[in-house]
C-alpha cells in the first residue's frame, strides 16, 4: 500500500534520512521505533508531503507522492496525526473536527464521520463547543486522532501518540487505535518512543537509527531480539 524506496531527506545541508526503505501493507499496523532524532518524525513528514525527499520514491497505492502537496496527499486517503498533537487551540472541538473533514463536501458524509468519531471518543462529544486549547493532553490527543479520522483515511500516520499523556489515558488511546484498525480496516503506521507499547500492538516493526533502518521484522521477533531488548525495552 505504502512504499518508500531509497529515500534521502535533507534539512539544508544535513542529511536526516539515508536511503530509507519501508513498506506498509493493507490492513497492517506497522511501527517505527527509534531514539530521539533518529528520523522517525522526518519519515512521517516526508510521507505526508511536508518535506520533500531529495532522492528516492514514495508511493501510495502505486501513486507517486513525492511531488504532491500535502493537501493532495490527504485527498488520496492518507492522514497524518503530527507529533505534539498540533490541534487548533483557538478553534472549538467541533471546528477542529470540521477542519479534519475539510475535503469532505457532502454534509451527510460529514455527519456520519462525526458520529463515528464521537462513538470512538465520547469525551469529545461532551466537550464539543470548548476551545481545543482547554482540553487535557489526553483529550487533545483524542481530538488529534479524531480530526485525522474525519477525512475517512485508508491509512493513518501516528506520531508519538503517547507523548506527554497520563499513563491511564495512553492505554485507552492505544485501545482505540487498535479498534480503528480492526473495525474500519484503517492501515496504521505508528511512530513511538515507547517501544514496548508499540511492539505489543503492531504486527511488524522497523528500528530506525540515525536516519537508517537497522532492523525490520515481525514484532514477535523484535520483542525477542537481544539488541532491541537492550536498546529499547530495557
Amino acid at each position: 500500500m505504502l512504499v518508500l524506496e531509497g529515500v534521502d531527506v535533507f534539512y539544508g545541508r544535513i542529511q536526516a534520512l539515508h536511503g530509507l526503505n519501508l513498506h506498509v501493507d493493507d490492513g497492517e499496523i506497522v511501527t517505527l521505533i527509534g531514539c530521539n532524532g533518529a528520523g522517525k518524525s522526518t519519515t512521517l513528514r516526508t510521507i505526508s508531503g511536508l518535506l520533500r525527499p531529495r532522492r528516492g520514491g514514495v508511493t501510495f497505492d502505486g501513486k507517486d507522492l513525492a511531488a504532491l502537496p500535502p493537501n493532495r496527499i490527504v485527498q488520496l486517503g492518507l492522514s497524518h496525526v503530527p507529533e505534539g498533537r498540533r490541534i487548533f487551540t483557538n478553534l472549538t472541538v467541533r471546528e477542529n473536527l470540521d477542519m479534519g473533514a475539510y475535503l469532505v463536501r457532502d454534509p451527510k458524509a460529514r455527519r456520519e464521520r462525526l458520529d463515528r468519531v464521537f462513538a470512538l471518543f465520547p469525551r469529545l462529544e461532551e466537550r464539543m463547543d470548548q476551545p481545543g486549547g482547554t482540553l487535557s493532553g489526553g483529550e487533545q490527543q483524542m481530538l488529534a486522532i479524531g480530526r485525522a479520522l474525519m477525512s475517512r483515511p485508508r491509512m493513518l500516520l501516528l506520531d508519538e501518540p503517547s507523548l506527554g499523556i497520563a499513563p491511564i489515558l495512553v492505554k485507552e488511546i492505544f485501545d482505540e487505535i487498535a479498534r480503528i484498525n480492526r473495525e474500519e480496516g484503517t492501515t496504521i503506521l505508528l511512530v513511538e518512543q515507547n517501544a514496548n507499547l508499540a511492539l505489543h500492538r503492531a504486527t511488524r516493526g522497523y528500528v530506525l537509527e540515525t536516519g537508517r533502518i537497522v532492523l525490520e521484522d515481525d514484532t514477535k521477533n523484535l520483542l525477542q531480539n537481544p539488541q532491541v531488548k537492550e536498546a529499547y525495552l530495557g
Binding site: 508531503g49 490527504v74 487548533f88 483557538n90 478553534l91
Partner: peptide
C-alpha cells in the same frame, strides 16, 4: 494558528 497542521487537514 498552525499552517503545517492545516496542510495535513487537506
Amino acid at each position: 494558528e498552525d499552517s503545517d497542521a492545516a496542510r495535513l487537514m487537506g
